[in-house]
Design a protein around this nucleic acid. Structure first.
Lengths: 113, 113
DNA sequence: GTCAATGCAAAGTTTTTGCATCGAT
DNA sequence: ATCGATGCAAAAACTTTGCATTGAC
């Protein structure tokens, strides 16, 4: 949980999480990590996010926020505030209750390079 | 292309596209569909979108639009207009140039059921 | 003949499951 | 003994590639 709640590290993939745990000396198989995250997700303590790179990422559940993603290095950050207008013009009949926004471009490092 | 440009059908997966083509009498292997789409994507005529359900979807390239997705039946539609404010409050240093928004909830059919 | 398009099968990724084992109560 | 947690390997789902063949020019 501490890992997933880190302020700097956002939305880790299972592999990243597994490696990060190993580095910290936590010996757990990939399956265990998978199942732990699955469990935490069901409990509502962890949220799965999909940033469009083809794999699921996980982060500590919390207040809504959107994501920034660097198209060059893959770096991920949370957007400081949500730029989606509260009243989306939904086609009639739809009942909408959530959204996921990924803004992409170049992070400071890659934009300079 | 005609299929991918349809107004009703948005963002087909490779499998859906393959099946749709078969139904229309176009006999092409899955690989061929994959490579055709890959080619069209490189040409900029087709755009890949990821709506968070774990597989890539493809649609005709065109003016920006975001997506609606029904969490119950998977139905997908384009949002009539983009509810993202033009000037996202990006952290300093980032150079942003695109976004992908998926609004989800229940489609008219599933909301009623 | 040449070169691109095609089909099939196989490999690569990532996610998920089966199953036997280990551990605490 | 029981019940959940664990590890390993295998299965699944999707995407991508290798390679031999086919087809158009």
């Amino acid at each position: 949980m501490t890992l997933l709640a880190g302020r700097r590290v956002h939305a880790l993939t299972l592999t990243e999480l597994h490696e990060a745990l190993s580095r910290r000396g936590v010996r757990a198989s990939f399956s265990s990590v998978f199942r732990a995250v699955e469990h935490l997700e069901r409990e509502g303590r962890v949220a799965r996010v999909d940033l469009g790179d083809g794999r699921s990422r996980f982060e500590a559940a919390g207040p809504h926020h959107d994501h920034l993603r660097c198209e060059s290095c893959g770096r991920i950050e949370a957007l400081p505030r949500c730029p989606v207008t509260v009243d989306p013009p939904a086609p009639r009949g739809w009942y909408l209750h959530r959204h996921a926004l990924v803004v992409s471009g170049l992070c400071p490092g890659c934009a300079r390079g």
